[in-house]
């Protein structure tokens, strides 16, 4: 690549491009890259062979599958219901709207361990909600003779991750929706579009970038979540053990390099997935413009 100064010069009315770029890179380096570099260095003690051996260990694979799978499902759920919530909060007026708006952020404020314990209390088989799905109730009997176990199963993991990821989609979609003119919808309607096609062809495409960003944030947050999940997961190896717990387990064995290796694998997968999401978004935007 050609790194001549001419290439770096950007046309802009505001000067200081080099200064701000330099500052941004230095900042990113300090805050993100140095810790990640240290992590990589620690993991590299094992060599490539040792790292691959850990990454492809059956138990680690099962944990990674659960962590990423449950995070994906939770982010999807948040995508759908976060969109609905944002819609209601932007488009309608109702008493207590400010309070509902504030409630959305609460999962951010709550210590995750508290969230985990609360959810486990509610969804255990003797909890308020968990009891509804027990074998004695008709709801529970729909799921077979043992009822539906929520806490201490992978379902519990999805539940906890949905909880912690909720604010992301709402907060990314909300401002875009607020800027979106109702007149555009009226125009679509006056041009003969049905309600469904107004939504699918006018509103949804405009919201999609924000929605994807929210989805990616909720997903990334869920992948790294530890505090709330361990209280509701059951933590049975191969079944309900999340990857961050395996990292903690390695640390308990004073196996710092092994812990770092799993962390690096998680980072690599997350990075690729987030990159793919970003690329999809770019592709979608250029398609929209065309």
């Amino acid at each position: 690549m050609n790194w001549s100064p001419a290439r770096l010069r950007q046309p802009s009315v505001i000067p200081g491009f080099r200064l701000t770029l330099g500052f941004s890179l230095a900042y990113l380096f300090l805050i993100v890259l140095i810790p990640l570099g240290a992590l990589l260095l620690k993991a590299s003690e094992l060599g490539i062979g040792g790292m691959l051996a850990i990454a492809f260990d059956a138990r680690v694979l099962a944990a990674l599958k659960l962590s990423f799978g449950a995070s994906f499902v939770a982010a999807l759920i948040n995508g759908v219901f976060g969109l609905v919530l944002a819609w209601v909060l932007v488009r309608y007026r109702f008493p207590g709207k400010k309070i509902v708006d504030a409630i959305v952020d609460l999962p951010f404020a709550l210590p995750t361990a508290v969230a985990g314990i609360t959810l486990a209390t509610l969804y255990a088989k003797n909890g308020w909600v968990g009891a509804l799905f027990g074998p004695q109730t008709w709801v529970g009997s729909l799921f077979g003779p043992k009822g539906l176990m929520i806490a201490y199963t992978p379902l519990g993991v999805v539940l906890a991750l949905t909880f912690v990821g909720l604010p992301f989609v709402v907060r990314t979609v909300q401002p875009v929706l607020a800027d979106f003119d109702a007149e555009t919808e009226e125009a679509a309607a006056s041009l003969g579009a049905s309600r469904l096609s107004t939504f699918t062809r006018v509103i949804f495409p405009a919201l999609l970038p924000a929605l994807t960003t929210g989805f990616a944030l909720a997903f990334a947050r869920a992948v790294g979540e530890y505090g709330s999940v361990i209280f509701i997961a059951g933590n049975i190896p191969m079944v309900s053990e999340i990857a961050p717990l395996l990292i903690v387990t390695k640390l308990e064995e004073y196996n710092y390099a092994g812990a770092a290796a799993i962390a690096v694998v998680m980072l690599a997968i997350s990075f690729v997935l987030l990159l793919v999401i970003n690329l999809l978004q770019r592709w979608n935007q250029s398609r929209m413009r065309a």
């Binding site: 209390t121 088989k125 003797n126 909890g127 933590n235 049975i236």
Partner: peptide, 19 residues
Amino acid sequence: PVLDTGARGSTTTFVQRGI
């Protein structure tokens, strides 16, 4: 059915959650 990470966690699971 549940492998908690610590002894207090297990006591809670048994006593409070009824598992």
